[in-house]
Each structure stands twice: as structure tokens, then as C-alpha cells.
Write a protein that binds this DNA or RNA. Structure first.
Lengths: 152, 152
DNA sequence: CCATAAAATTAGCCATGGCTATATCTTGCG
DNA sequence: CGCAAGATATAGCCATGGCTAATTTTATGG
């Protein structure tokens, strides 16, 4: 248990600023990650990802999806020709897979801790992006242990 | 363990859209929460929260802090008079306390799962905002259990 | 094979949350 | 007590990620 008295003020300003900077940076990648994961899922399910479907599932208007897909292309994660479906580059596909895997791990962890499935899904959607490699490994280790040794 | 084959595509579009909408909504509150928590910490430590200190610790330029404080005031979370320090309203203080408590719980959980302290702090900064009441309760329950019954 | 429906794009608006440069207020020191 | 330094505020810029409205392209059914 951390000391309740130990407010964040105890840490040097620069270090605290760095944490916030990291969180902002993660946030700017989160949208890309969500799109890439979704596009991957749509391709798996339907053979292609149409802008209308992306928009519907992201819960945004079509032009918003078009705009974000343009950003994906700029970043080398996706490809598309005008009025055609969207596809992932190799890099995009790799990212999609790692995002999907991390997402699953986060949901599994929450469920293992006793969070009801629907809550776990909703919370995971936001949490996952902030889970670092190191933390992800800890989650996986815990899940492995829980399997072997169900509960107390 | 969730079924690896069960991609998000299995869930109805509207439900998936709702999850993303929730994550976006959380995101828009996250900044306010961070500021309110920091202002609370600064007041506890120094008796007041100066814009320069807020900016330094948030890792942003002074005008950015000023602008966000204005938003805090608009939302009824803080008060301030020109060229004077920033203070929290009752509602702001309540929010600060609940954010601080949730932050501590998230860090404690990560540490309990074996994440090194500094990593836990960094990841928690982003994760905490997406942890719902329900999930928070599960974290607390797990931590209580771990205390009683240290490890396997 | 063409007309219409459906899908995608483009244009242009808004709020947020960064920034720099400039102006104004407070404060402390000589 | 007045002025320079430091703190705060204001103005105005940029990118992101939403939106609606209008346009263009593709696909389909009669």
C-alpha cells in the first residue's frame, strides 16, 4: 500500500511532468490503435473494411472516419484507393495484432479480478492504451498463475 | 480467458460504438481530473496553487494552464481571482479526493501484480481515468484479499 | 443502359488543448 | 517609494477530432 500522505507533490516536478507528457503521447496514439484494430477485425470478418462500417462501429460520422483513415495512411498503417475499401499495411497488421492481444489480456485481467464482462469490455477500451509492455507482462504472469491455481 | 477467435466484430455495432463513445467521454474529463488533483496537492503542500507551479508540474506552458483553469472555473470546480492563486470549490475538492484515492488504488493494484513502482506510477496516470466505480471496487477487493493472504 | 440509391469524398465549421509573443499586474529591493 | 523582475493574463496561431452539408463516384435494378 502506498502511503496515503505521499501526495504526488513529493516527486520532482520534472518527473511528474514527464508522466503527464507520456499520458498525452499515449492518448495521441490511442485513436490510431483503435482504428487499426477495428479495420483488422472487419477485414477478418468481411474480407474488407468499408468506411461506413468503420464509422458505424467507432460511433462517429462517416467523414470523421474518412479523415482518420487519411491519417492512418499518412502514418503508413493503412492503404486505400478512392471509393474503395481500407486495408492494412504490414506494419498496420502487426500493430492490429498486438493491440488485439493486449486488449484481450486487459479484459481477461479485469474479469479475473471479478469485474463483470460488460464492464470489463467498456473499461478496457480506455485502459488498454496506457498499459506498457512491462505492465502487460505482469498481467500475463498473473493470469497464468490464476489458471494454474484458480482461487483461494 | 476470452475466446481468441471472438473478435469485437461479434458484438453489435451500436454496442461497440457505445464503448468508444464512453472512452471519448472519459477522455474529455481526464484533464479536469488531473488538474483538480494537482491543485489539491499543491494547496495541501503550499497552502495555495500558483499557475506557474501547475504548469510546471503538468508539463505545459503557463498560458495552457491558465486556459485550463478557466475551464475548471466554468465547470464549477475551481475559483480564482486575477493574478492570485487557484483554489478548489467544494465540488472540486470532493473530486480531487476521489481522484486521488482512485489513483492510489490503481497504483497499488499494479504494484500488487508485480509492476515496478515507477512503471506503475506512469501507467496509472493514464489508466485511472478509465477505471469505473465497479472496476475500482474489484481492485479494492483484490487488494484487501492480498493483504490478508499475501501470496501463493 | 440508364436512373437512382448508396457510399465515399470534400469543404468548411466548432471546441479542445497545445504553443509563442505580448501586455499587464504584483512584489520586493535598493 | 519607485522600478525591475517575476507572475499572470491575453491574443492569436496550429493540429486534432468531432460535426453537417454538398459533391462525386460506384453499384444496382428496371
Amino acid at each position: 500500500m502506498t502511503d496515503p500522505k505521499a501526495s504526488a507533490i513529493q516527486v520532482p516536478p520534472a518527473e511528474q511532468a514527464g508522466r503527464f507528457a507520456r499520458a498525452r503521447e499515449v492518448q495521441s496514439r490511442a485513436l490510431l490503435e483503435d482504428y487499426v484494430e477495428l479495420i483488422g477485425d472487419l477485414i477478418t470478418a468481411h474480407g474488407e473494411a468499408r468506411v461506413a462500417d468503420i464509422a458505424e462501429r467507432m460511433g462517429v460520422a462517416h467523414p470523421t472516419a474518412t479523415k482518420t483513415v487519411a491519417r492512418l495512411k499518412r502514418e503508413g498503417l493503412a492503404t486505400s484507393r478512392p471509393y474503395r475499401g481500407v486495408f492494412l499495411t504490414e506494419e498496420g497488421a502487426r500493430l492490429a495484432e498486438s493491440v488485439r492481444s493486449r486488449h484481450r489480456t486487459v479484459v481477461d485481467l479485469l474479469v479475473a479480478l471479478g469485474v463483470p464482462a460488460e464492464h470489463a469490455e467498456r473499461d478496457a477500451e480506455g485502459i488498454e492504451h496506457h498499459v506498457s509492455q512491462r505492465t502487460l507482462r505482469a498481467f500475463e504472469a498473473f493470469l497464468t498463475k490464476s489458471e494454474t491455481q484458480p482461487q483461494s
